[in-house]
Nucleic acid binder design. Structure first.
Lengths: 210, 210
DNA sequence: CCGTGGCGAGAACGATCGTTCTCTGCCTGG
DNA sequence: CCAGGCAGAGAACGATCGTTCTCGCCACGG
């Protein structure tokens, strides 16, 4: 799995160039669509030679998969960071939608990269389809864990996931980020319906339904 | 906007060939992605000459837009058909998810064609982006009308739309159609939270929350 | 100081695709 | 029966793209 087990103390230059390539490719693929971006453009954006690009990734598909892998890790990091420091399990669940809202307001936001890649290449590339499936399934598992901590079951988690997914595509296509807040309000209703009235001491805004 | 206001009694042959082309292109574009299908393959599937294809559609983009337009009409027809004959406004709202479930179980189902097209071409083709926006907005308007008939407001409608959108991408990527039923259950909770307990005489299954 | 080997820059190659053009056969109007 | 034009089949063309090859430069080791 790991690239080359170099024994150098600092970051291996090979890993550095890999990350630069992946970051450049991600920005281009995500912003314009994968097939709309040529390898030469990736090379230029990464500031690397074409030969080096092809020694790091044997083909475009492997680069795409590496990009999706990196994007998946960033998504997971962002999710856990959003939940960090929040005491109430119920608010950790809702923090998912706060994280979405911050993402949607980023002006480079163009929907979920996995949904986009799946629609564009899922039928052609089994690897891309599998990456999308794994990403979404991992999100399901994450939300299910949060839901369980809050006392909810898998059904509640699945429904909260639907809201998050719908918010992503709606925000992407409409161009307006308020889908995140709408999803949060709906999630609050679902959570309260499943778990009962909100817990007592919750400060912030967790208590107001509407 | 409408094609040609022909005064002939039966379908004009030009319209017939157009429809054949659009139907063939839709199946190919939707099943494999737009850029993965060449114009020559569309020509073969439609059983038409390349010249005729290009007299009907000046370029691939116009064909794509025509496909999206036809798909939008089919979506609207399916939606209204799903609501037809249902007396209770609340059940008409939930019928959206029954319609989704039937769609998801179709073995050619591969997600929402507009979301897929938007992800693939939305950044490159303003026409495609606009078509996706219009389609989603029209769905919002439709659900908002149903919600109002049931006594709900625009917020309820927006939240129900999020569930429907999320169900589409989730069913597409996971490959399992049960997202529709999950969305329906969540919608039921949201509707009852917004409108109060279910109305009395409703037969069927509208009364059981869980 | 000289050979060598690796690396970057970019040309080159083969394939695909969108679009147009050519050729040939057929059908129609007189 | 004949001329004309229209449509279908498919070749052709230009552009793009993924991938590979070549050339020249630079650093480094003996």
């Amino acid at each position: 799995m790991t690239t080359t087990g170099t024994t150098t103390g600092t970051v291996a230059p090979a890993d550095d160039v890999r990350q630069r390539i992946v970051a450049a490719a991600d920005a281009l693929f995500y912003g314009r669509g994968i097939q709309a971006v040529g390898m030469d453009e990736v090379r230029a954006a990464a500031g690397v030679s074409l030969k080096r690009l092809y020694t790091q990734f044997p083909g475009k598909e492997q680069l795409v998969l590496a990009v999706l892998d990196a994007r998946h890790r960033q998504w997971q990091d962002g999710l856990t960071a959003a939940a960090a420091g929040i005491a109430a399990p119920r608010d950790r669940l809702l923090a998912v939608y706060d994280f979405l809202e911050r993402w949607f307001t980023d002006d480079t936001f163009r929907g979920c990269g996995f949904i986009n890649a799946f629609g564009e290449l899922g039928a052609t590339s089994p690897g891309v389809a599998q990456a999308a499936r794994a990403h979404k399934e991992s999100f399901q598992v994450y939300v299910a864990a949060l839901a369980e901590e809050a006392g909810g079951d898998a059904d509640l988690a699945a429904q909260l996931v639907l809201l998050a997914e719908g918010a992503q595509t709606t925000a992407a296509i409409s161009g307006r980020p308020d889908a995140a807040r709408q999803a949060r309000r709906a999630a609050q209703v679902l959570v309260e319906a499943a778990l009962g009235a909100p817990t007592g001491p919750g400060g912030a805004d967790g208590a107001r339904v509407r």
